[in-house]
Design a protein around this nucleic acid. Structure first.
Length: 286
DNA sequence: ATGGGCTCCTGATGGC
DNA sequence: TGCCATCAGGAGCCCA
């Protein structure tokens, strides 16, 4: 569910509440939300209890808590339905779909809520990536996102080398991270490209245009707190985002294209809905 | 190498 | 009102 703007909104809220705080208690319901840690909750306890949160960082749709004096971080991925909620009142029992709870030294509680449990939490060692940035080791195949200060050809050189559909490439987190189904379609609409155009058939300038479009639309969404279709996406305070009203194609099948009036269509690419305007984004000749 | 299908889950929605 | 099918913002796996 959450894509880069939603994850960044949550990261910022989490940082505001937790930076510099010490974790005094960790509780969980033993769910499958904890991944890649054989000891499950024991690993969380071992690394988090008494740890001080130094920073909350993000790349793409992943975020992680950096801990003072530790080479390990708590990695958070929200999957389709994950939420991070910050509250004041600790209660005996966890709420429905609340899988892990951190209690901080100022009494605040941080809850990881996820109805569909496609998200995950992992204690993971930090290691330098190819650019020298410290990232969790489990993210070694996650590419930088469009907001990172990386060389201009970071994304486009990989795009030029694959014959896959451009839509699938935008969703591939090992090529460019942070883009999900909504913003992929919005970026393709802005770039005037149909999702089944082959990535390697794009001129370098076109490839850059679509990446820049993704960055622009995600930046605009971030300003209004992200996109909420329903109660599944809310920020750390429980509030929704307001970008849905600014979507130009996503979810608009059967409605008029806002640019040319042609009826917006929906088809499936790689198992995901693709919303597009046939006139603004001509499908390639087969 | 690539794409399609299927999987992990719960919940919202719409048709009958 | 209720039941059932369909769909969903992610991502990894297997197979052809």
């Amino acid at each position: 569910m959450p894509e880069l703007p939603e994850v960044e909104t949550i990261r910022a809220g989490l940082a505001r509440h937790t930076k510099g705080r010490r974790i005094v208690q960790v509780r969980g319901n033993g769910s499958r939300l904890i991944r890649n840690n054989p000891q499950g909750m024991e690993d969380l306890h071992a690394h988090l209890v008494d740890a001080q949160i130094r920073a909350v960082r993000r790349r793409g749709k992943f975020m992680w808590l950096e801990l003072a004096g530790s080479d390990f971080a708590l990695v958070i991925h929200l999957g389709m339905s994950g939420q991070v909620r910050v509250g004041q009142q600790d209660m005996e029992t966890l709420e429905r779909h609340e899988h892990v709870r951190l209690v901080l030294d100022d009494g605040k509680i941080v809850s990881f809520v996820d109805p569909r449990t496609f998200g995950h939490l992992t204690i993971c060692m930090l290691t330098p990536d190819t650019t020298g940035r410290l990232i969790p080791a489990i993210m070694d195949s996650v590419a930088p996102d469009p907001f990172e200060d990386v060389p201009a050809d970071t994304f486009t050189s990989a795009m030029a080398r694959t014959s896959r559909f451009v839509k699938s490439v935008l969703l591939d987190q090992s090529i460019v991270s942070g883009i999900g189904n909504i913003y992929a379609d919005e970026a393709l609409f802005r770039a005037g490209l149909h999702g089944t155009v082959r990535a390697k058939n794009l001129a370098p300038k076109e490839a850059l245009t679509v990446i820049n479009a993704a960055r622009d639309v995600m930046g605009e969404a971030l300003k209004v707190g992200g996109t909420s279709f329903d109660a599944l996406y809310v920020n750390t305070e429980g509030d929704p985002g307001y970008f849905e009203r600014s979507l130009r194609v996503y979810g608009r099948a059967g409605e008029d294209c806002l640019e040319c009036g042609t009826i917006v269509e929906r088809e499936v690419i790689g198992g995901r809905s693709h919303f597009f305007c046939r006139r603004c984004q001509p499908p390639p000749a087969v």
